[in-house]
């Protein structure tokens, strides 16, 4: 049971691929307990998640390969439960328990 003093969190999985895993300690999948609300008490959305990932999971100093001006870098695709985030409201999508969020870069060659 959630302690009333502790901020409630949402359990989700976050995946990185297409070269982005390099920025996150070469790990593809993370189980994340995301605070249910942001600093202003608004429900956690993708924008908040990106910010959270940069603050807590990013091991690499090259944050600009993931975010530019606090937005996801153009050329990185975001899939929410396998669906293009453009179909789900992009940054404003409110995160639900057990969501899977995949960040996949199109920017890297082979």
């Amino acid at each position: 049971m959630t302690n009333s003093l502790e901020a409630p969190t949402i359990p989700i999985t976050v995946d990185f691929s297409g070269g982005l895993e390099m920025l996150f300690d070469n790990q593809r999948r993370y189980a994340v307990s995301l605070p249910a609300t942001d600093a202003n008490g608004k429900p956690a959305n993708i924008s908040f998640l990106i910010d959270h990932l940069c603050r807590t999971l990013m091991k690499d100093p090259r944050a600009d390969l993931f975010v530019l001006d606090r937005h996801i870098r153009p050329g990185i695709l975001v899939l929410i439960n396998d669906a293009d985030w453009e179909l789900e409201g992009e940054e404003a999508y409110e995160i639900q328990p057990r969501d899977n969020i995949l960040f996949v870069s199109t920017l890297h060659g082979g």
């Binding site: 070269g19 390099m22 050329g75 695709l77 293009d84 060659g109």
Partner: peptide
Amino acid sequence: YEKEIVLYAHHKKLDYFSTEC
């Protein structure tokens, strides 16, 4: 589109390698 190539690879679960030179 590069975007669709990546999505095709993702949805068909193709095995590819991505890194920067």
